[in-house]
Structure formats: structure tokens, C-alpha cells
Amino acid sequence: MSVFDGFKFRSISSPIHQLDPRAKFIYVCVLFTVAVMFNNIIPLLILFLIQLPIVFMAKVQREWMRSMKGSAVFAIMIFAVNLLSLYFYAGHETFTSILERSLAMTIRFIVLVQSFSIFFLTTSPDTLGLALEQSGIPYELCFAFTTAVRFVPVLAEEAQTIIDAQKARGLEIESGNFLRRIRNYIPILIPLIVNAIRRSLELAETMESRAWGACKNRTNLYVLKIKTNDLLLILFSLLLLTVSIYVSINVYIPSLTSLLI
């Protein structure tokens, strides 16, 4: 289990999984925009909290936790860098406000990771490819995308086989300094790449044998349709955007400390 499991699609049935990827994409874009619009802690904290019910509705709490844990190291780094740079360069602010600003930046990062994680956890590559296709992106590119995703587990397994084979012949992967370690991976990368090329040739043969490129208007077995839930999500996203723009222009946002004290 690695950090990437926090972004890898799991086939579960939930209202969030059934949403149209295009609707989810709009939502993620809005979330990104709003997160970048504010640098106060309160609105960012609200953004973070808005997404929690979605995580639970999608039943991906465990995977989501993993992505959160995985991003913790970066979050701490961002916090530290912000704290130090604000402390040394923005001389007039009080320490609490510096602390709050750094914390806000960290939460912004977490919000971004979180929305990414939710999107990829709940969107199957198949429907994502379909969404791309229906958005007018050429079929060849969409096909390349879904096929690439499809072969990730296959290549991972193959890489493991090659690693085992090379270890059995005495290759030490985990030894030496940084540069040495990179060089250790060459005997693994070369067979992996050669195999991948060979595989792609065989795939091309199969595609040719199944009438690839036979007609301009190819049918697609599945069609995506915007449903009520998708419309609701889009509506919610637009509302969120409008409110955020209004607030950022017209409303003074108090700092967290001023509310607490």
C-alpha cells in the first residue's frame, strides 16, 4: 500500500461514483479557484469541511485517509517554509497572524490534494475516457489514455518480476549512495522498456485485427448523460463560486484568533 492508493480508483457503488465526471471536474475546478482566491484560514477551513460529507457519501474514507497521510510530509514542509519566510520578511505582523497565515497555506494545500483524491478515487478511468471523448477530444487520444491506465497494474507486475529476476542474479538495488542507486535501476528499466515496446506492437496488431479505423463515426457502447444529481453538483459549484467571489470582494474576513479571543 502506498500513497498512490489514495488516488487509485476503486470500484464501489455510491452516489458520488455515479456522478458524471464532467460535473465532478467542474466541482474540482471551482474548488481550486476558490482555494486560491482566499488566504485566510476561515474560508479555507470551510472548504475543507464541505468535502468531508462527500468523502463519507463515496465510502472512500480509508483511501482518503491514506492520501491525507501521504501529503502530511509536504503539508509540514509548506507550513515550515511559510512560517520561516513570513517571520523573516514580513516584519510588521504579529506572530499569531504569521502562524495563522502559514496554517492557512497548509490547509489550502490539503484542500487541493483532497479534491484531487476524491475525484480520482470515485471516477473510473473508463468513464473519464468517455467524458474526454464526449467533450470533443479525438478518440485516439482518449483511447491512449484509457489503455495507459489499463496497463499500469500489468507493468507494475512485470517490473516486480524483472526486479526479482535481477536480484536472483545478484543485483543489489538498495545499496550505495544516491547516484549509485539510480544506476542500479538501469538493468531493470531496460528490459521493462523493451518489453513495453514489444507489448505495444502486439496490441497494435490486435487493434488492427479488430477493424481499428474502419469507419469515421464509430459507435460507443456507453453514453454519458447529465442527470439530476450532476445538475445539482454543478449548481452547487456555481453557487459556491459566486458566493466566494462576493465574499472576497465585499466582506471583511476576521482572523481565527480574533474570533477566539
Binding site: R210, A211, W212, G213, A214, C215, N217, R218, T219, N220, L221, V223
Partner: peptide, 9 residues
Amino acid sequence: GLENLGVPR
């Protein structure tokens, strides 16, 4: 294959 041939859904 059938999609490529444009067969109806």
C-alpha cells in the same frame, strides 16, 4: 471491434 465498425448500440 463492433464499435470500430459503427454497429448500432
